Amino acid sequence: MPPIIMILGLLFVALFVLVTVLEKYGKKRSDEELSQISRFIFPLVGIVLLAQLLYMLFR
């Protein structure tokens, strides 16, 4: 079996286990907490994209 298929299989199993455990034992968050967290998502994604672009240009 090619190694890439084994890696993808392991990642899928790990993701499945992680999601089920987090759904069972995870803390429920209020809408206010989620809105505070979500307002940082787009700036962080932009910073990461800019950093990756600069890395690719000056590599």
Rank of each mutant, 00 (worst) to 15 (best):
L11A: 11
V19Y: 05
R39D: 13
V45T: 11
L18K: 08
L8D: 06
L53V: 12
K28N: 13
V45L: 14
K24Y: 09
Q36N: 15
V17G: 00
K28P: 00
P43T: 02
F40A: 06
R59H: 08
R29P: 00
R39Q: 15
I4Y: 06
E32Q: 13
L11W: 05
P43Y: 00
S38H: 11
L11G: 07
E33D: 10
L15R: 05
L18C: 06
P43S: 03
L57A: 11
L11F: 11
S38F: 08
E23M: 15
S35D: 13
G46A: 10
Y25S: 05
L34V: 14
S38V: 02
Q52D: 10
L34A: 03
I7W: 02
V21D: 03
F12H: 03
P2N: 10
L34C: 05
M6D: 13
L54H: 01
I5D: 13
E32S: 13
L49S: 06
L54D: 01
S30I: 03
L8Y: 03
F16D: 07
L22G: 07
L22R: 11
R29G: 01
V48F: 15
L18E: 11
F12T: 09
I5L: 12
E32R: 05
L11I: 08
V45Y: 05
A14F: 09
R29F: 07
F40Y: 15
S30L: 07
L8I: 07
L18A: 15
I41D: 06
L15T: 08
I7V: 14
V48T: 13
L15K: 10
I37R: 05
L53H: 04
Q52C: 07
T20Y: 06
E23V: 06
M56Y: 09
T20G: 02
V19S: 04
L10G: 15
D31W: 05
I41Y: 05
F40M: 09
L50D: 02
F58G: 01
L8A: 12
K28R: 13
P3Q: 09
I4Q: 14
R59C: 04
